[in-house]
Design a protein around this nucleic acid. Structure first.
Lengths: 234, 234
DNA sequence: CTAGTTGATGTGGTTGGACCACATGGCATA
DNA sequence: TATGCCATGTGGTCCAACCACATCAACTAG
């Protein structure tokens, strides 16, 4: 077993034993190295991995933001991993989209009509009405869909949903260039969002799932999923 | 931007540009450090991250297994990340199980009746008939469910399925201690497996999905999901 | 006495160099 | 020809030093 893996397993044990909790701090790198009788290099390699996994955040200096603190951002880790494997062409973008449809349609069909996340979702829709810039609109769109997914109350589903979205974010942004008319597309998306949210509010999970599926698949179809950006549609 | 992140982005670009392909080799650490004008330490930190992401594998010595080669094992990366966040109690085990049910029931409902993976699945069931040891049985069980998931033809779904399973593997193994009678449980599982496979062969996706849902939820209910291992059932 | 400056301290970030264990392949020797 | 040995190149580990940064306490000028 390599040295940094030893450090890794030590830290993981501290986590599962509850000796390290969310917001807590790891010992300083030098101290941890001395305590485990390994080099600081190995400690740092372990911390790099935990950072990539979204388990810790390292900050220089002194005080509040300094040191290595325990966080919980699984979506960043999953997103990076998925993105890398999309880059190697091992995970097709179409499969990611399909998985996202699956998770999100399940989420809206399960969402409680009085879930607090829906209030936030409605607020985001209001902001989208006033947003014309593509980048702003897409950012709000991401937040809206995430809020919708969180309303189902399954942390794993919403986390994976977010990471799937993150993995193809660059891809999706490039696809907007394929759209014949952004303004009309944006208006259509606004309407569809309202309809989805209304279905959830009505407690009609089946309708919400159908709408969300059509919403996502329709967008990628219009933007030309699978074809290089810039190419005209057949 | 930190130095190792620069190395990371350089490698990711090589991957997405196709200059680095599956099975290909990264330059040696020392050479890469000189080429990018950074220290070997920073190169190593980047490689550690890629290794944790399941994108590369590092091997010492010379020849075939030596050097840092590009691989594609997204499931290991996602599995580790999920396992770590389960350890911090940020992702409930129940949500993981629920997500697994969602993905797997979708997979079997979509599986083609003549998918080649089903042949392998049937072979695994035969081996399970001859397997009495708990560990062997569980290992075959994992392989069976994975083969089933792969029959749907969505790489992302089967990858996530596998990583979800991996993330709670230790947990699931501990749960077997809760079972009142392992042999009878194993026999029941064998029957349910056959029934699921038969439904898929019949092209009855709906029945297959129902059976798989009952199969997984039933097992975890019997084993006492959510209660500490060893505690008796109410 | 107050307000601003300055230095000590502790954090992660980075570097260069050294050495180790390992696996291969070619060279020298029996 | 067959065998053993060493040069070579790989990742793995460690060390010592320095940097940039943020805070806080002590000090100094007003």
């Amino acid at each position: 077993m390599r040295t940094h893996e030893l450090v890794l397993s030590w830290i993981e044990k501290q986590l599962s034993d509850g000796h390290l909790v969310l917001g807590g701090r790891l010992p300083a790198e030098r101290a941890l190295a001395e305590q485990l009788e390994v080099s600081r290099t190995s400690v740092r390699e372990a911390i790099r991995i935990l950072e990539a996994m979204g388990v810790v955040r390292a900050g220089v200096g002194s005080g509040k933001d300094a040191g290595t603190v325990v966080i919980a951002e699984p979506a960043t880790a999953l997103g990076s991993a998925l993105r890398l494997h999309v880059a190697t062409q091992h995970l097709p973008v179409a499969d990611i989209v399909q998985t996202r449809v699956l998770l999100e349609s399940w989420a809206v069909s399960r969402a409680k009509a009085d879930a607090p996340e829906l209030v936030e979702a409605a607020r985001l829709l209001d902001k989208m009405d006033a947003s014309s810039a593509v980048d702003d609109f897409l950012a709000l769109d991401v937040a809206f869909h995430l809020a919708l997914a969180e309303a189902a109350g399954n942390a794993v589903v919403s986390t994976i949903m977010g990471s799937l979205r993150e993995a193809i974010e660059g891809y999706a942004a490039a696809l907007t260039a394929n759209l014949p008319n952004w303004d009309s597309t944006a208006n259509r998306l606004r309407c569809e969002h309202r309809a989805i949210l209304e279905a959830v509010h009505d407690g009609d999970g089946g309708r919400a799932a159908t709408l969300v599926t059509a919403h996502i698949e329709g967008y990628y179809r219009e933007a030309g999923l699978g074809r290089p950006p810039g190419e005209t549609r057949p």
